[in-house]
Each structure stands twice: as structure tokens, then as C-alpha cells.
Write a protein that binds this DNA or RNA. Sequence first.
DNA 1: GGGCCTTTGAAGCCT
DNA 2: AGGCTTCAAAGGCCC
Length: 524
Amino acid sequence: MPQLNGGDGDDLGANDELIAFKDEGEQEEKRNVSAGRDLDDVKSSLVNESETNSSSDSEADRRSKPGPDLESRARHSQLFEEALRRRQDGGLFQPSPYVGYPFFMIPDLGNICNPYLANGALTQSARTYLPFQWPLLDVPGRAAIRDSATPTHLSNNVPVVQHPHMTHLHPLLSYSPEAFSPQRASPGFSPDAGMSRTPHAACYPVSPGGMAQLTHPLGWLQGQPMYPIAGGFSPAALAMNASMSSFSPRLVPTSQSSIPHPAIVSTGSEAGSLPDGQQEREEEKKPHIKKPLNAFMLYMREERPKVVAQCKVKESATINQILGQRWHSLTKEEQAKYYELARKERLLHSKLYPGWSARDNYLKRPRVPPEETPHTHTLLTQTAHTHPRSHLTQPHTVSHLTHTHLSQASPASSLDSPATPTTALASPGAPQLQPLSLTTKPHRTAHPLSRNAVTPGPSTPSSSCDTPTSSPLMTSSRCSPPPPPPPLISQPFLVPPPTSAHQSAASSHGALTQPFSLRRANQL
DNA sequence: GGGCCTTTGAAGCCT
DNA sequence: AGGCTTCAAAGGCCC
């Protein structure tokens, strides 16, 4: 566990962070205990509640139970620790966010490797990135730069390379010191050389002072507009970037005009449906800011390589099933790490994008190829606000109203009291309700029609990881042949009848007995 | 080439 | 308030 608040406590670059985290600044061990205790408290309340109906599934009971579950958990914990050690030793795995969790608020860095900026070239999934990610920038034009293994000099000399190993770049989880080191800065960030391709670089907590010594990778772009702010990023975000950055504030773009960068273009579909209005055009250039990752997503991000390596499984659907059950096999303390990390992710996200709301990404994806005129676009947009679930008719273009608050957010209000509810979540007084349904959510049964008609069922202590059907827990460090179906008695997660709270949490994914594919079909 | 699958959690919208 | 839906990551698979 790293010192999340290492240094002088300015790693976040914001004092309110210290306020937000009541334990911030204390010893990490104490923080861990505190986080675990908080989580325990929250979970215990739920457990107590559920115990009124059934005590068989409480965490305490599970943990006190001898037998395969305990054994598998011990193995898993051993694996977990081993993985942590490996990462500390500079192994191939992505460094654990807790080993070197670089929880600092360096907006420039966060922007450079900003994982929230999606759409094409800058997304991890697209595996295309600029040598540095443009702050608050959405670069949808992936088609133009995709499959470019070598730097592609675009019209304004911004090299674009494709780098499958940089998918780990993340403002919180993994910064590559090599990518930012002065030694490598030149070849790595030079417009002529593109980015260092060193994969799996260890991450480290960067102190602002240390970063100040580095050559800003954007130096060659100083004076140029860096990204469009037409999307309505509040001056607060920019001010924060400037104030919190160890780099020159001049790098913070001040122009409201869009960048003529070739990579910073709207997607073809967006451009094709552009209405004539200038405002709409600007809205379509708005960057797509991704949601912050939740605890499980962070866990998956970290554990996925292990599962892939251990099980030789590459299908994400299968891996996710494994990880889902592994997640349930984690102890509260282990889960608490990820909840804490997710909480800080949300906090960082809310600071980077004070006006952002999950609503901004809501129903933005085109479900049906739009055949719309500007007139219908307007109508559909209005309809979408009235009936946002009617995604069949939802235009793929951005809504008119959802972003208006972004540009209206005042710097002071954004900084002092970010408008996003995530900040409220991160506030010390806000209860952490996330873990409530962790170990009580019943497993879904895969629909037989589903392509991946695997039926994970309740977690079992088995160590096989051939398929989630046999045993997804994968508590062993090796993949073993699928054992015979374990007796039901060995299932560690016998789910009690859900309480109202459980029901609510579990039902958030639809009917418990209804497979995802069916639910999806019903949605459509 | 793009959508689906699959997981959990956060947050949105709707009733 | 409660229930339901969407999105976040990921990569093989399928059409």
C-alpha cells in the first residue's frame, strides 16, 4: 500500500482533498485499517440486516468457515500478495495501484495520460494515442490514425502512434516514468520520434517538484491551441490545470476555438449528421469524457492480465466471469482497497472535469443508424431528454442541454464544490455505500441462447479456470484441468434471500433470473 | 468493421 | 424512494 498522501500532502494539489479524506495524511497502515473498518461498518450493517433472514452468507460466517472456501481464499490472498511483490519488483505486470498508487493531482499528467478521454485515437481501447493525451480532448478520428505503428505526421506535426502496450496508462494507476523522463522525453515525445514503446513501465508516485524538472512534452506545442473547449469545460478545470500544474500554465489552452488538429475531429458518423448550426457543430466536437472506473473495473484492470496468463483465456466475457467471482472471493480488506481507489478516481475525475456528469454520456451511443435531418435531430434530441431510454430513436449526436452546465460552471463553484455528485460521494461525510451488495448479489444464470452460455453459478473453491462453468475462482496460481462438478455444499456463496437492500442492489442489473442477453433483448 | 458478450459498481432517469 | 437502465474496460467472437 503506497503512501497515498505522500510528500507534503500536496500530491493532490488540492487542499480539499485533505479535507475530503479524513484519514489523509496519516500513516498508510492506519488508512488501510480505517478504510477497511469503514467498509466493515458498512458491510456489517448490511450483514446484520441480512442475517435477520439468513446468516449463512455473512462475511463473518464465510470467513470463519473452515474448509475449501477458506483455503481458496488463503491461496488467493497469497496470489494477491505475490502479485503485489512481483509488481514491486518491477515485473511485467502493471504496477499495483496500491503499491505505487500515484494519487497525485497533476492535471497535466492526468491529461497526458487521461483515460477518461475517449473516442478513438486517444482511447485505450483504440490503442491509439498521441504522445501525450491532449487535455480535456476527445479525438474521435481514429480511422485517420489507426494502425499506425509509426509516428504519423499529421498536418500540424502531431505524431500519432499506435501502441498496444500503453493501454495501462492511467492517471491514477500507471504513469510511465520513462515516458516522462527527461532522458526519454526527447525520443519519446518528440514529434519526430513518437512515443516510447516501452511497455509496462513501472509507475511511481510523482511529486510535483520532480515533475517540474522534466521537460514538458508539450513544449514544442506551446503557443498552439491544444484542444477544443467548445465542449464547455469550465474555466475551473483550466484554472485547476494551471494552478495545479507544475508545468507552464501557458500550456493550458485559453482559446475557445477548436484545434485544427487532424486527430481531433469528430467521428465520421458525427460529422455526417452535423446540423448546420454552429452551436451544434461545437457540441459535436465536445470531448467524450469517460466515466471514472468503479472498484470492480479497477480490479479487473489489474487482475485481467493474471487471469489471461494463468488460464490462457482471452475472451473478456469469460475473463470477466472469472474476475467477477474472484471479486466476490476477495476479503473486505482487499475490496476496500479498490473501493478506496475508485473513490479517489471519482474525486480526481470530478476535479478534472468539475462540470461533468454521467448524464453527459448517457444514451449518447447510437443504437440505430440515424437517418435524421437537422429537423429530426432536434426533435429526437428533445425527445431523448423527455424519454432518455428511447435509445432506439436517440440520435447519436450530443444532446443540447446536457452540456450547457459545463460551460456555465463557475471556477469558484467548481473548485470549491464541484457540481458532480461524485465529489459528494468522496466527501468524508458521505457514507460509502458502494460495497453494500458485494457479496450478496446472486449470480446470474446464463441464458442458454447466449453465445457464451456459461453458467458460472456460485463460486466454488476449485482452482480450475478453463471456463467459468467449471470454476471461475481461479484461486490457484495455475490452471488445472476442470475437476468434477463440486458438490453444492462446497459453494461458498450461498446467497440468502435478499433483503430489500439486497434486492435493490441486485435488481440494478435487472431481473436476477433473467440473463443478460434476454434483458438486453427486452431492452431492444 | 462493428456489435455482442460478461462482470460489478456508479449514476442517471422514470414511476 | 425504489426500480430499471446505461456506461465504464476488455478482447475474442460472430455477422
